[in-house]
Simulated assay, not measured.
Amino acid sequence: MKTHLLKWHEGVKLEVWFSYTENYRVFKAFSVEINGKKSNWTGLKKYLECKERPRMITVNTHFGEPEVLEKDRHRSERHKVHEIEEFFNSISDVS
């Protein structure tokens, strides 16, 4: 499951891409662009009121075990992506 989030904060364009999938393994990808230039968490946190990262960004999924049932895997994917969306949406929109 993937999400692309876009915010304008004080004239700065913030974009986040996050994907999380569970099949035979757990895969996670997170990337940030600020004003169209590749960045990372450190660059993004300057614009955040809460400096704590969502756990899903920091957790090591290399040894993660996917859920056994397909419906549980999909629920887990939706939950993880929703966690990132909620966090990013907490950034105030300022044009």
Rank of each mutant, 00 (worst) to 15 (best):
F87I: 13
Y24V: 13
K28D: 10
K46T: 14
K46S: 10
N35S: 08
F27T: 02
T42L: 11
E15I: 11
D93P: 13
W41R: 01
N89D: 14
H79E: 14
R53Q: 12
S92M: 00
F18A: 10
I57P: 03
T21C: 12
N23W: 01
E22K: 01
S92K: 05
R75I: 13
H79S: 14
N35A: 00
V26T: 07
V26M: 06
Y47C: 01
E85G: 06
G64Q: 10
L44K: 01
C50K: 12
V81P: 11
V59N: 05
T42C: 06
Y20M: 04
D93I: 12
S19N: 08
E83M: 06
L14V: 13
F30L: 12
S92C: 11
I91V: 12
N35Q: 02
F88P: 10
P66K: 08
N89M: 08
N60I: 13
F63V: 15
I84A: 02
G36D: 06
Y47W: 13
V26W: 00
E33D: 03
V81Q: 10
M56C: 13
K13Q: 09
L5E: 02
E22P: 01
S90G: 13
E10Y: 04
F63K: 14
W8C: 15
K37T: 06
R73A: 13
V59S: 04
V12G: 00
W17P: 08
M56V: 15
E83R: 05
K7M: 15
S39K: 00
N35W: 05
K71G: 02
K38C: 09
G11R: 00
K37A: 03
L48V: 03
V12H: 01
L6G: 05
H9Y: 14
S19F: 10
G36N: 06
T42V: 12
E85S: 11
I84G: 00
H4E: 07
W41S: 07
